[in-house]
Structures are given as C-alpha cells and as structure tokens.
C-alpha cells in the first residue's frame, strides 16, 4: 500500500511540468497521510502509558473505554514519588548511568584514538576484536560472571553480588565496544594532515587528542555519551540477575519486579513508574536529537 503511493507519485513523473507539480502535491499528501498512520502506531504505547497513569484505581478495574480518562488524577504519581523505594531506584539508576558514561568515555575515546591513529602491533586485530565483542550477548555472560563474582568474594572478601555499584563495573562491557567503534569511525574521518601538522609542531599524542581530535569529533562524543547513557539506563538483564534487595535495584528492574505484584491491581502506578523512568532519555533526546541522530548514523556508516 505504501509503495502504491510512491508509484502514483513516480510513475507519471516524466510528463509536462504542470502535472509534475500536481503529482508532487499528491505525493506529499499521501506522505503526510501515511506518516500520520505510522506516527499513531509509534506513539500509541507511550500515549496509552500516559492516560493509564492518570486513571484512578477504580477506573482501571472497571471495563470502560480504556482510551479515555473520565476522572484524571495524579494520585499514581504522588503515591509513587512518596514511596522511598521508587526514589531509591531512580537514584541508583542515575548514579550508575552517570558513572558508566564517564568510565566508558574515558576508556573508549582514548582507545579509539590509539586504534584509529597510532596503531601498534595487533591494533587491527583489536579493532576487529572490539567489534566481535558485540557478538557475545549479555545473556551469555551473566551466568559465568555470576560464578566469577563468588570467586572474587572467596579470594578477596569483596562482595559484588547485590550491590548497585557492581553495575558500574558491568555496564561498560555493553557500552564500550559500540562507543569505541563510533569513535574509531569519527577519528578515522579526520584528515591526517591535521594531526601530522600538530605532531610536527611538537605536540604530544595526548595533546593531539585533547586539542584537536576531541574538539573536532565533539558531535560524535556527544552522540556516544547519549548512547551510553541510554543503554545504561535501560539495561535489564544484569540488574535482574545480580541485584535483589529493594535498596539495590535500578529503575527498569525495580519497576518490573516490585511494582507488578501478582494479585494487586497496580497498573496506574506501573504506567506512571514506566513513564517517569522513560523521561530522562526522552528529555535528553528532545534537546539533543540532532547529536543523537548524527552520531548514531555517522558512527555506523563510517565504522
């Protein structure tokens, strides 16, 4: 059906000038029509999240029009935000995500620079290795990681299980490969003359990185940072497997495991919680959309 629209637009194109512009107008209308349909499809779940979060309990329990709120209330949000547990999840998530962003960017920017520009024995293999890391999913690693953690405790006495800060150690395994990859792509696209000139002028490698590469590749760095934050904020499996105490949970797991209680009718709160949980990435995205998109596409095409 979608193609049909393109067909009517394109097939008659090589005609007289006036008809081209009339066809364009129709193509435009069809485009808007289908875009609206897709936008409805894409935005419906978050919209439904919003209206459910505004409903009082009785209204959710009754079989009424689910797409409408008859007696809007903020009770779900108020109850949620006055609960200590939810605020703890939020705080844990925020600290973990910020720390992971910092750790990831330090590791990946420096490593990407060294892999893209300096080269050393095995650096090409390593670059491929970084990519291959992607093929090893978290779903494969969490079982052995769990056993490794008990080994760490037995030998050093440091308990890694059931602490939110363990996530700061684990999440970079998910973010560093992609960020390094994006950054290698970005750095590789910077003209060689720039750093050669800097080196001839007597700059060290580190100065070349901080004074030339980082400023030039700033959009990529911002993009990688956003990616990194989004991934850390959304990660589900590791915290599900490694943390259990209410004080140690991060947001996605906290919402899924403590707000959904088998028999209790909690959907207003669950939706409110999910909506608030989705807010930070959405806000960042709303303000930095262009960086987000530019970085994502550039990193992937050039890598």
């Amino acid at each position: 059906m979608a193609n049909a629209a393109v067909a009517t637009a394109g097939a008659v194109r090589p005609l007289r000038y006036g008809s081209i512009s009339r066809d364009r107008k129709w193509a435009l209308r069809w485009s808007y029509f289908f875009l609206t349909l897709f936008a409805i499809f894409f935005l419906m779940p978050p919209f439904y999240m919003l209206i459910t979060s505004l409903k009082p309990k009785e209204e959710i329990a009754a079989i009424t029009n689910p797409w409408w709120v008859y007696a809007p209330t903020l009770d779900n949000f108020i109850e949620l935000l006055t609960q200590n547990a939810y605020m703890t999840f939020f705080r844990n998530s925020a600290i973990v995500s910020v720390c992971v962003v910092i750790v990831t960017m330090l590791i990946s920017v420096i490593a990407a620079f060294s892999l893209a520009r300096m080269k050393f024995w095995g650096s090409a293999t390593l670059a491929t290795g970084v990519f291959l890391t992607y093929l090893i999913p978290d779903t494969l690693l969490f079982i052995p990681l769990f056993k490794m953690m008990s080994w760490v405790r037995d030998t050093t006495g440091i308990e890694l299980v059931n602490h939110w800060w363990t996530m700061i150690i684990l999440y970079p395994t998910l973010t560093v490969p992609f960020c390094t990859w994006i950054m290698i792509g970005y750095f590789a696209s910077i003209p060689k003359e720039l750093d050669e000139a800097a080196l001839i002028d007597g700059a060290t490698w580190m100065q070349t990185l901080t004074r030339i590469f980082i400023p030039v590749a700033l959009p990529g760095i911002i993009a990688a940072t956003i990616f990194c934050f989004t991934v850390s904020w959304a990660q589900f499996l590791y915290p599900l497997a490694f943390t259990t105490s209410t004080t140690e949970l991060v947001l996605p797991v906290g919402i899924v495991t403590t707000l959904i209680k088998g028999d209790v009718f909690n959907w207003g709160q669950i939706m409110a919680g999910a909506l608030l949980g989705a807010a930070p990435p959405l806000i960042i995205y709303a303000f930095l959309m262009d960086y987000y998109i530019a970085g994502l596409t550039a990193g992937a095409t050039k890598g």
Binding site: F146, K147, M149, S150, R153, E159, V161, N162, L240, A241, F242, T244, S245, T246, T247, V256, T257, T258, I260, K261, G262
Partner: peptide, 22 residues
C-alpha cells in the same frame, strides 16, 4: 525487604543468595 514472587523474583533471589553464600 519485601520480595515479590511475580516474575520468579523470589526464586531468583533465593538462587542468587544460595550461590553467593550470603
């Protein structure tokens, strides 16, 4: 701590603690 049994959370907690010996 109140641990829900929905989504096997309680089961996972038990397994985790038994493994971790803490």
């Amino acid at each position: 701590d109140f641990i829900t049994s929905q989504g096997n959370k309680l089961l996972l907690t038990t397994a985790a603690e038994g493994q971790a010996k803490s």
